[in-house]
Design a protein around this nucleic acid. Structure first.
Lengths: 154, 154
DNA sequence: CAATTTGTATTATTGAGTTAATACAAGATG
DNA sequence: CATCTTGTATTAACTCAATAATACAAATTG
């Protein structure tokens, strides 16, 4: 693959419409590689670093860049598709969805309620009052908004 | 074990100081057995069904009751001990701790902040507003309180 | 002080989840 | 229409967490 015959064709790759993604993988982090991919891409979408309509690198390209198996990238892309964050166009590549999440509100609410239940239960375990939790939610929400704004400005 | 020789000694067991725990295990729930134990015992402590100072069933007793391996119960008890919910007295049994959680507030806050961050990020992904999340937290907190009160009354 | 009851430690087996190797299908493109 | 690039599908190997089998250590108790 490295010792390819013929004239230099690297230029083709550098012209690719899809950006070169800034992703870092920690092979032995405990967290599965495909999940690291999902999380980092999710966060990049959430923070505005990846804009709707933008094309993601082809599965093989990203796999080569990160020195991992294409199947691993494929799995991450599939999960992102199910989550509604990206759309695949058969042979044309993978793109960031225009709308955040296409799931029905009822479904989303159900998922969120599960998360909230777990949080509230755990907070209770740790002897935190409702007010503590509410304050923390507001505080961390603000922090995320700040991070977002900064990312967009860059 | 069932066809034990000698006179009937079952009476000894029925006089045990430790209660007969109401726990239900779903072997193929995806959730590991030891975690099901941890969660259910945690919840019983949180809801007041298990009072501080109360003795838990001996590892072997609970294992036999639930038809699982003693090691699995031992693991659950160990995790509960690390979490500070129970205390072990070498050869005298396992007891519900007097205080809920002995972790320093700083530590607990750190853990809770991680949870909140994840929740806020996910809620944002799902296009929920901060107000939605706050309302849901209050709502589910109230629901948990109700469930608690009911459990104590029983 | 022997017996019983408590939790502990070590090791092996199993099973699910993760990753990789490889071959395939389908649409775009010159 | 041949070729290239895209995502897809199938299968195998590997890793690790969960559970079980078994033997051990320590304290109470009659």
């Amino acid at each position: 693959m490295t010792a390819d015959a013929g004239p230099v064709r690297c230029a083709d790759l550098s012209f690719s419409r899809a950006l070169v993604m800034q992703i870092h993988i920690s092979p032995n982090d405990g967290v599965p590689i495909y999940l690291q991919l999902v999380n980092q891409i999710k966060y990049q979408v959430a923070s505005g670093r990846l804009a709707p309509g933008e094309e993601l690198p082809a599965i093989r390209v990203l796999a080569e860049q990160l020195l991992i198996n294409p199947n691993t990238v494929a799995r991450a892309y599939r999960e992102l598709e199910v989550a509604g964050l990206v759309e695949k166009r058969r042979t044309a590549g993978t793109y960031v969805s225009e709308q955040g999440s296409p799931l029905a509100r009822r479904e989303r609410l159900k998922i969120l309620t599960e998360r909230v239940d777990a949080l509230v239960a755990e907070a209770g375990q740790m002897d935190f009052a409702l007010e503590d939790v509410l304050a923390l939610v507001q505080q961390r929400h603000a922090a995320l908004q700040t991070a977002r704004a900064q990312a967009v400005r860059e």
